[in-house]
């Protein structure tokens, strides 16, 4: 097991014995059981900053809706002009054996392209989150990882439980682009407050902080994600505004026709 070598370092920082804490699977199940509403609409700003400090900004409008257990997500780019009208759609199926279906609309081609769900480890349109990260939002994948509780830690003044997630096999690790993930989960609200990622060779890859978590219409909601890629020095900040769980989102938003038409 090439991942086992990381294990002792995190036990060292743990203040409470892992045996007294919920196991990894329980933590993951609680995260995914948290109510995130049947639907949500929101504006998301993506600020991407390279090693030299140069920042690019994208304004997007995002929608997510559950159709039974199937989750559909649509992201529409509003600004700047060079990426305006780009749109992304994904269908995430509850059946672990079924690949997601994903489409990307590129306005320069005026065509909706089918994209492979195996691209899920690729970075999403220049950000530091992968397609898979974007799709999962504040949830975690139960099928791609095995989980172990490491202990406790603190993030931004919040006590949280450290959980190590290891890809179930080498193929999955390659697809995801991660050899190991360590998440710090706030047990009061079952929200990941920090996630550290290592690449498939065991090198530190990136760290993501989930901040400004507060209730919107009774549902815990992140309003800021800060991700730093340790290999490239590139950073992305996601800012969530006008989060709305109540206003109905039409089924037609999650279609290829909607990608073409834009908002």
């Amino acid at each position: 097991m090439k991942y086992i070598s990381f294990f002792p370092a995190f036990l060292f920082f743990a203040s409470v014995s892992a045996a007294e804490l919920p196991d990894g699977d329980t933590v993951a199940a609680n995260i995914n059981a948290r109510n995130e509403g049947v639907q949500v609409s929101r504006n998301v700003t993506m600020e991407m900053t390279d090693r030299s400090g140069k920042t690019r900004t994208r304004e997007t409008r995002n929608f997510r809706k559950y159709f039974g257990k199937e989750k559909r997500t649509a992201i529409f780019y509003l600004e700047p002009r060079n990426v305006k009208d780009t749109a992304f759609l994904t269908y995430d199926y509850p059946d672990a054996g079924r690949d997601d279906d994903q489409w990307l609309y590129l306005p320069a081609m005026r065509k909706v392209r089918r994209i492979s769900a195996a691209d899920r480890g690729d970075y999403f349109l220049g950000t530091d989150l992968s397609y898979e990260d974007i799709k999962l939002e504040s949830r975690v994948s139960l099928d791609d990882y095995t989980r172990h509780t490491l202990g406790e830690d603190q993030v931004d003044g919040h006590r949280c439980i450290l959980v190590e997630a290891l890809p179930v096999d080498g193929e999955t690790a390659k697809e995801l682009g991660y050899g190991r993930v360590e998440q710090c989960v706030d047990m009061d609200i079952w929200f990941v407050r920090r996630a550290r990622f290592w690449d498939t060779k065991g090198n530190p890859l990136k760290t993501a902080y989930f901040r400004d978590i507060r209730q919107v219409q009774g549902l815990w909601t992140q309003h800021q994600i800060d991700v730093e890629n340790h290999k490239t020095g590139h950073r992305t900040r996601f800012l969530f505004r006008e989060v709305d769980y109540r206003t109905p989102v039409g089924d037609q938003v999650f279609t290829q026709n909607a990608l073409r038409r834009g908002l």
């Binding site: 279906d101 994903q102 089918r114 492979s116």
Partner: peptide, 11 residues
């Protein structure tokens, strides 16, 4: 037609 198969997309 188009469909994804793992790393591949046929269209």
């Amino acid at each position: 037609f188009s469909r994804a198969f793992g790393d591949w997309v046929a269209r």
